[in-house]
Amino acid sequence: MNYSIAIYGGPYSDQSAHSALHFARAVLKREHSIQRVFFYHDGVYNSSALVSPPQDEANVPAQWQELAKEHDIELVVCIAAAVRRGLLDEKEAKRYSKATHNLADGFTLSGLGQLIDAGMTCDRLITFGA
């Protein structure tokens, strides 16, 4: 089956992104595919390149990057939710005249339509709410 996952919670403040990682690994282990992970609401914080946890805590964006690269998963961050929370790629940083950008590699800013599309086209859309 083809899965997509929606994540609405930020890392280090609630469990949803961690639950989603566990779930994603189990989905792949059962030989399904994951088309897209969509980050919405505070879930957009999972895409910060500046996340710097203590050494004994998992780097959540890095874990998503690794999983996405290995299994060809799209990591899509809602652009409207991200920009207002200060998560910008190079293009948005330019648009809003910011000195720097902080969206981690492997993540893409895009519209909420990508979440609608995942619901329409995938066999399963599983949401991890905050």
Binding site: H41, A81, L112, G113, L115, I116, M120
Partner: peptide, 19 residues
Amino acid sequence: TSWAREALDLALVGAAFGQ
């Protein structure tokens, strides 16, 4: 919280996608 607004956004975008 922003939940209600972000849920409504989804409804409007869904409609824009012909759903």
